[in-house]
Amino acid sequence: MEILRIEGLAKIFGSGHIQVRALEDINLSVSKGDLVALLGPSGSGKTTLLLCISLILEPTMGKIVFDGQTIFQKNGWAGVDMRRVRREKIGFIFQSHNLIPFLTARQNVLFPLDLVGMNGEQAESRARELLEYMEIADRADYLPSLLSGGEQQRVAIARALANNAKLILADEPTAALDTTRGKRVMELLKKIAKENQSAVIVVTHDVRMIEGFDQVIHLKDGRIETEKTNAQN
């Protein structure tokens, strides 16, 4: 089942003769449980694409359909409450500094639950469950500054999963980690795509990390260069 469809998307920064065409004619389709890798050199538009999908950056043209709802078309945002869509349907993991530093691991996971009005014992047990799932439950009451980079990323993933996000966006989640820890995080992302049936889009520089992905999209100068679809499962 299709969760995200993008048609003819373009993003142009600036105006006049200092225009930067960050994205041009992007078309893609992501289904439930899909694991998508977004590859490309620096400045190729990966983050820009992620920001457009997450309703943070307004595209210049094209169309975005998310979870059956047209959220963007040529006239602009289609009257959706963007923060609400984000807190209810999208989970975010980024390169680093993901976590709110003054909240413990557990509280960081509780935060998105609190935003959708879930609290008390129900929220606590959900947080515990997620931290156990990410194998970080023993560090639940640590502040992020006391956790290693890999541990922080696992807490961030737990937080991204908290509201059963339909789409998880990860911008270079392994960039700050060594290969072993990076691989471990990628394994977890694969696991949630399969077990949770969330679509996961991961931006990465590192081709070694992408084995077993359903789609691998190569961006270059804002255009999709090659698209490889694995149908291995």
Binding site: I90, I100, F111, L115
Partner: peptide, 18 residues
């Protein structure tokens, strides 16, 4: 000092009143 955390909160979808 918290501006980055505030950006994270907004990204996660925290409404302005939070």
């Amino acid at each position: 000092e918290k501006i980055r955390s505030i950006a994270v909160m907004k990204l996660i979808g925290a409404p302005d009143w939070v």
